[in-house]
Design a binder for these strands. Structure first.
Lengths: 181, 181
DNA sequence: TGAAAAATCACCCGAAAGTATGACGACAAC
DNA sequence: GTTGTCGTCATACTTTCGGGTGATTTTTCA
């Protein structure tokens, strides 16, 4: 009658599993991870119960078997609980966005409007740039392959257009007006 | 002889506690929360065991007591495990540092280290600042109520210390070194 | 209190910077 | 083809700058 009992048990299990499936199908929008966790939990619980049942028959005769049984259950479920707890809290990573003001490297854009407004030519601006870098008229002349007098005329014109009396003042005004970086 | 035994026991406990204290003192930097958790866990475990012992004597006579016992243990330790797991899991808050380029108004801080390194005095720096603003030596002298010669000596010194040949170059170098805004 | 550092001023001289004026060629626009 | 702008260069002149030297006073600091 052993095989009959097994057959009945299987049928019983089959019915149960069908019912379970039907119930689960009725709740489709359930949180997936939660569902999975519960399923795994239930599965492990079932396995554990089975193991315990087996152990029960083995160890029930042994003295203090209840303590061993309880200890095993406690240890297993504690481990399971810890695992579950860790799993459940895993996606709880809080995102803190801390905005740090970064001194952006001053991206210089030439103020061409001001350039045209003052009627400063490209060449004159070029000379002004070299002046701002600290070059003397002679050095600028050598760098641009022109005479020192040419540099002087250009610089004089640029000073006049910037209303500057000195090259240092011209540089200062040029920076203020966005003509120099 | 009862009092003697008690005395010995107390002395023994005293020795033990002293040893324990010494050992604990040697390990001062142990993680506190971990310790607390373990202590709570152990305490609850002890209480639970006591409760179970009591229950054991009450329910052992009842049929299926082992199942009830195991279920209780399982439930309690599962709950405990979940709680522990939640506690143990670090508040996983991820800090995302997002650097946002903010056009921060150039907050100028004087590079005093460079100033001392080059041996530039306050007065010399002051003259350099006025030079950077485009003033002539005469104008600076008038502004500072000193003679033009004084301004010239100061500026000459500053040029020498900055390895500059011209005032424009001195201004440029001064800005590079963080001595001028 | 006494030496070192800093600030002040003066004089000279040469170099650099800046002004004024004129001129010439290239090139684009009208 | 005339006009205007731009870049180039020159001469002459004035102003400013920068180097060098020396000196005096004030401040600072040990």
């Amino acid at each position: 009658y052993g095989s009959r009992a097994i057959g009945q048990s299987l049928r019983y299990l089959g019915l149960r599993s069908l019912l379970l499936q039907a119930i689960l199908a009725k709740v489709p929008g359930f949180i997936n991870s939660m569902k999975r966790h519960i399923l795994i939990y239930g599965l492990l619980g079932g396995i554990l119960i089975t193991l315990l049942k087996l152990m029960e028959y083995r160890f029930l005769v042994i003295e203090r078997s209840v303590e061993i049984y309880g200890g095993l259950v406690a240890a297993l479920f504690a481990a399971l609980g810890i695992w579950l707890g860790l799993r459940l809290t895993n996606p709880k990573q809080k995102v803190i966005v801390r905005e740090i003001p970064v001194a952006v490297g001053d991206l210089f854009v030439l103020n061409e409007a001001k350039l045209n407004e003052l009627g400063i030519t490209r060449r004159e601006l070029e000379i002004l740039e070299w002046i701002a870098k600290g070059l003397s008229n002679r050095e600028i002349a050598e760098k641009l392959f022109v005479s020192e007098n040419t540099v002087k005329t250009h610089s004089s014109r640029v000073f006049e257009k910037l209303s500057a009396k000195r090259r240092t003042q011209a540089v200062q005004i040029g920076k203020e007006l966005g003509l120099l970086p």
